[in-house]
Amino acid sequence: MEITVRTSLGPGRLVVAEAEVPVAVLWLGHGAGGGIGAADLAAIAARLPGQGVTVARYEQPWRVAGKRVASRPEQLDTAWRETAPAVHELAGDLPLFTGGRSAGARVACRTAADTGSAGVVCLAFPLHPPGRPESSRRDELLTPTVPVLVVQGDRDTFGGAELVATEAADRPNIRVVPVPGADHGMKTLKSSALDAHDVAGLVTSAVTHFIRDVVAP
């Protein structure tokens, strides 16, 4: 199911994979360099409905318009906030989880309080630009007061799983799940013990267990 949502920045699009008997809704945004077809987002949309989680992947207006360069962070946040009522209508009384990959994870963290998020799912959170650890986005990661899951490759040049775990060590609401051998795109080397299928299984399992833990602790 596709839902076009009008925003002040143009139309965005929700692509929804519905669970037959949903217990929660997960709303995910994409990164600045790709769309909702990213491997981890696609795996979640394919597998989580079978676990009782309806998945709504959101295409930002800049992406729907066919632009190649992402909008500024404040514009991403605006479109996300303006889409929230449509997502809440979709969710009804069900718990709504927000999240995304890379830039989409940053948006979800910054807006968690505004969107009524029950928990935030961060896939490949870009803790800092590659090679610039001094430009940390730690404050964004620590913004949500609700439970946060970070699924992070240990070869991520935007900040590996170990660094993310260290930066969030004093926040008990943040859970970090490392993906061995994975880079920012959740891709592993041919010599890695995990292949693409294994990574998809690890990511979807981590997200499923996180949502279940929050919904029914």
Score class of each variant (00 low, 15 high):
Thr143Val: 05
Gly92Asn: 14
Gly131Asn: 12
Thr157Gly: 13
Ala113Gly: 00
Pro147Gln: 09
Asp154Gln: 09
Leu149Pro: 01
Arg137Leu: 12
Glu140Ser: 03
Glu89Pro: 03
Val151Asn: 05
Phe158Ile: 09
Gly153Tyr: 03
Val107Trp: 07
Gly92Cys: 13
Val121Gly: 00
Ala118Met: 02
Arg110Phe: 06
Leu163Gly: 03
Phe158Arg: 01
Asp114Val: 05
Leu141Ser: 01
Gly116Cys: 01
Ala161Gln: 11
Thr111Glu: 11
Phe125Ile: 06
Leu141Phe: 06
Gly153Glu: 04
Pro130Gly: 11
Pro144Ser: 11
Pro130Arg: 11
Arg106Ser: 06
Leu141Thr: 00
Arg101Trp: 10
Arg106Pro: 05
His128Gly: 04
Phe97Ser: 02
Ala118Gln: 13
Pro130Ile: 13
Asp156Thr: 03
Asp156Ala: 10
Gly116Arg: 10
Leu127Met: 12
Ala108Cys: 08
Ala113Phe: 02
Ser102Lys: 06
Ser102Met: 11
Ala112His: 09
Glu140Phe: 06
Glu167Gln: 14
Gly92Leu: 14
Asp114Glu: 15
Glu140Ala: 05
Leu149Gln: 02
Ala161Thr: 04
Pro133Lys: 02
Arg137Cys: 02
Arg101Leu: 09
Cys122Val: 00
Leu123Tyr: 05
His88Gln: 14
Gly159Glu: 00
Gly116Leu: 09
Val150Gln: 01
Arg138Thr: 14
Pro95His: 09
Ser135Asn: 15
Arg101Lys: 15
Pro95Cys: 02
Glu134Asn: 05
Val148Gly: 10
Pro130Cys: 11
Thr143Phe: 08
Asp154Tyr: 12
Arg137Ile: 06
Ala105Ile: 08
Pro129Asn: 12
Leu94Cys: 11
Leu90His: 15
Gly131Trp: 11
Ala86Gly: 13
Val164Phe: 00
Gly99Phe: 07
Ser135Cys: 12
Val121Cys: 08
Gly153Ala: 01
Val107Thr: 14
Ala86Asn: 13
Leu96Phe: 06
Gly119Leu: 10
Thr143Ile: 02
Gly92Tyr: 14
Ser136Gly: 02
Asp139Asn: 13
Phe125Glu: 01
Asp139Ile: 00
Val164Arg: 03
Phe97Trp: 04
Asp156Val: 09
Phe125Gly: 06
Leu127Ser: 07
Asp114Cys: 00
Arg155Phe: 13
Asp114Tyr: 04
Gly119Trp: 06
Glu140Val: 07
